[in-house]
Design a protein around this nucleic acid. Sequence first.
DNA 1: GGGATATTGCTATCCCTGATAGCCGTCCTA
DNA 2: TAGGACGGCTATCAGGGATAGCAATATCCC
Lengths: 146, 146
Amino acid sequence: MTLTNSLESRLGYQLRRASSVMMADLSRELADLDLRPAEVTTLLVIAENPDCSQTEVGQALAIKRANMVPIISRLMERGLVDRRRLDGRSHALTLTQEGRTMAAEAVARIDRHENRFTELLGALDADVLFRALPIIRAAREAELES
Amino acid sequence: MTLTNSLESRLGYQLRRASSVMMADLSRELADLDLRPAEVTTLLVIAENPDCSQTEVGQALAIKRANMVPIISRLMERGLVDRRRLDGRSHALTLTQEGRTMAAEAVARIDRHENRFTELLGALDADVLFRALPIIRAAREAELES
DNA sequence: GGGATATTGCTATCCCTGATAGCCGTCCTA
DNA sequence: TAGGACGGCTATCAGGGATAGCAATATCCC
C-alpha cells in the first residue's frame, strides 16, 4: 500500500528531503577523500580566506565555535591546514600545499555533484532557488528579533 | 572581518542552510509539545493512514525500519499511538483520541511555522520550490540506478 | 593604570537524525 | 515443504548541531 502524506505540501518537509538527498550524494562523492561535508566546507572557506580565524569560519558556515574545534584538529592532523598564532587567543588559518591540492580535488567533485542536480532543473528554476533559499535562511534573523 | 564564501553559489549548500533554519524554527514551535520533528511527521502520517504498518510509515518518510522502532515506541508510551496485531509480523497503527488531539495541535503549529516562511516568498517562488524540490529528491532513484 | 567586559579556543556532554549488520519469527510461494 | 521475502527488533556507530562553562588574553572605559 502507498500511503498518503500531506507533508508533501509543506515547504520545510520538501526542503529537508531534498537537502538530505543532496547531502547523501555529496558524502558519497567525497567518501574516498575521507572528508566529511563539514570538513570540506571548512577547507574551502580557509582556501578563500587565508589567515582567517576559527570562529570566523564558523560564522561563515553557521558552525558553533565549540564544533569547529574537532574539525580544525582533524584537518591539521591530516596536514591539510596550518595555523599560526596571531595573538594570545586567535590563530591564522591557512591551507598547506597538500590542503590546496585536496581543496582543488574537492571543488572538482562538488562541481560534478552540483551538475548532476542542476541539470535536472531548468535554468529558470535554478535562478528562483538561488533567490528563494537565501530568503528562507535570512528569516532566522527576523525570527530572532521577535 | 567578513569572509567570502563561494559555497553560497552551491545549490546543496543553500538547501542545507535553508532547511536547517526551517528545522530549527519547527523544533522551537513544537518544543513544548515535547515532540521531535521525526515524531510529528510519523504522527501525521498515521493520522492520515489509519491501520498502516510501521515500515509503510518509514517508506513514506524515508526513515529506515530500524529507526522507526524507537519513534513508535515513544509515541505508544505517551499514549498517542495504538497498535493492533495484524498477523504474526505486522501491526496496524492508529492514533488514540489523545493522539488525534495532539496531531491537530501539531498541524496548527506547523501551519503557523510554514506561514512564517511562505509569507516571505512570492506565490510564484513558492510554486517553483514545490516543483523543483521534488525533482531534486527524485534524483535519488536515478542515482541508485547508476 | 586597572578593573570590567568581550573574545578565542577549548573540554565535556548531550540530542537528533540516519545508517548498518544481523536475529527471529512469520508469511508466502514455487 | 523448503527457501526466500518480510516485519519488527537489537545493538551500534557516524555525523551534525547545541549548551555550559573554563582559561587565557585582549579591549575598552573610568
